[in-house]
């Protein structure tokens, strides 16, 4: 299992929005909270802290649109 709290802490730290911890359907890209740079930072932290490698190429924003969807994707990649 992916450590949900660990992931949400990383996400909140990078986005600077605590709301992403409460509202797991928060639209990260549509709201402008995450951009390319934030995404890369997130991927680097996920790899360093959680040990899950996410390929950068063709990172599909629809599949990673919300905290919930991200958790789903990470679960698959683990």
């Amino acid at each position: 299992m992916v450590d949900k709290n660990e992931f949400l802490t990383i996400l909140a730290e990078i986005t600077g929005e605590d709301e992403v911890k409460e509202d797991l359907d928060f639209p990260l890209y549509d709201s402008g909270v995450l951009d390319s740079l934030g995404t890369v930072q997130l991927l680097v932290e996920i790899e360093a802290q959680m040990g899950i490698q996410v390929p950068v190429s063709d990172f599909d924003r629809d599949e990673w649109a919300t905290p919930n969807k991200m958790l789903e994707q990470l679960e698959q990649l683990k």
């Binding site: 390319s36 740079l37 890369v40 930072q41 991927l43 950068v56 190429s57 063709d58 990172f59």
Partner: peptide, 15 residues
Amino acid sequence: FRDFVFMRMVFFLMK
């Protein structure tokens, strides 16, 4: 350019 150049380059620089 975003997916195949920018994100890869920044990923490398950051790591």
